[in-house]
């Protein structure tokens, strides 16, 4: 599904980030292979894939840090190959680990980042006050960042990346490991920014984070395998094709389940089993087979696929297509 663009929810959809047949090779290795997509203003765009799938290389090209071997890309209207200096002023970047100086205070971090983004004087004061307000750190300006709880740190890192009011911000696994309360506050802030027209580009391995994005792209082996909203991605599994089973001795029944011709994929989930089947009619056959094999009583219920199920499916299909 290369070249995919979802239909916009808004009629006047302004494209802020675009990649067209973007390709990058390192010697014989094709790190990014003809990747095309468009991201609209205000969109929260999730960018997922295995390690080595080409995500980082794509982002480095979009940030103007690496020249494409072929293909084109733009960020806020600037060409990534020829106008990288302009692009660097149009983007913000935040990663969970490296954005803040923990032995500096809140104020000192803001001042440092403002300096690197060339935000001075009145402009700096206005943006600093904004940052303190959205992070809730007005009363803790002299606190060392090392002493702040994780949730505050996260929001401070984000606001530092936004001091120069870039139209696009790149986030690298922004809330991995933070508690749900802090994560929710962080995503509330992201949502406000998105409503305000900031485009948010998120790379993550965390499905909890991916679920928060408006659209999600999946990269694998340099190619873009899928790009859509989460409900539409999950629709690759027809209703009733993901089943949860309860049976006796699930840990041993999984092998029996895997060998059934109706079953595409089977896995142990705690003391239950998950199966992906070709058609909803398979449920009855599975139940009979497991009972016959001595794993009864068996109950079968359809469940919603997880985003992880979706990705594994796309990747398996891509790998099968490759090997055939």
């Amino acid at each position: 599904m290369s070249g995919a663009t979802a239909e916009g929810r808004h009629p006047a959809r302004e494209i802020v980030v675009s990649a067209s047949e973007l390709t990058r090779t390192f010697g014989d290795f094709v790190a990014v292979d003809h990747v095309s997509f468009e991201v609209a203003r205000g969109e929260i765009f999730g960018f997922l894939g295995s390690n080595g799938a080409g995500k980082t290389t794509t982002i480095r090209m979009l940030c103007g840090l690496l020249r494409p071997t072929s293909g084109k890309g733009t960020v806020d209207g600037f060409d990534i190959a020829t106008e990288s200096a302009a692009i660097k002023t149009r983007i913000g970047y935040m990663s969970q680990k490296f954005s803040l100086y923990t032995d500096l205070t809140v104020d000192e971090n803001l001042r440092f980042w403002a300096g690197t983004y060339r935000v001075w004087g009145r402009e700096f004061e206005r943006r600093r006050d904004w940052a303190l307000a959205v992070t809730g750190l007005e009363t803790r300006r002299q606190a060392l960042v090392a002493d702040l709880p994780g949730g505050f740190r996260q929001r401070l890192a984000l606001s530092c990346a936004l001091l120069h009011e870039p139209p696009v911000v790149f986030l690298d696994e922004p809330t991995g490991g933070v508690d749900p309360e802090a994560r929710r506050d962080f995503w509330d802030l992201i949502d406000d920014l998105s409503e305000g027209g900031v485009t948010i580009f998120v790379t993550t391995h965390s499905m909890d984070e991916a679920e928060r994005c408006h659209r999600v792209a999946l990269m694998h082996a340099g190619k873009l395998l899928a790009l859509d909203t989460i409900p539409r991605l999950k629709a690759v599994f027809p209703e009733g094709s993901v089943l949860e089973l309860e049976c006796a001795d699930a840990a041993r029944a999984v092998e029996e389940l895997e060998n059934l011709s109706e079953v595409v994929d089977a896995a142990l989930f705690g003391d239950r089993l998950r199966a992906v089947v070709e058609s909803p009619e398979a449920a009855a056959t599975i139940e009979r087979s497991l009972v016959a094999a001595g794993f009864g009583p068996v109950t079968v219920n359809p469940v919603a696929p997880s985003l992880e199920d979706v990705f594994i499916r796309f990747i398996h299909e891509a790998e099968e297509a490759e090997s055939s």
Partner: peptide
């Protein structure tokens, strides 16, 4: 599984399931 990509994560859980078996 922290910081592990979805494919590797699923493989790891499959391995754990074998051990539970």
């Amino acid at each position: 599984t922290t910081g592990v990509d979805p494919v590797t994560r699923r493989e790891f859980w499959r391995l754990l399931a074998d051990l539970v078996g």
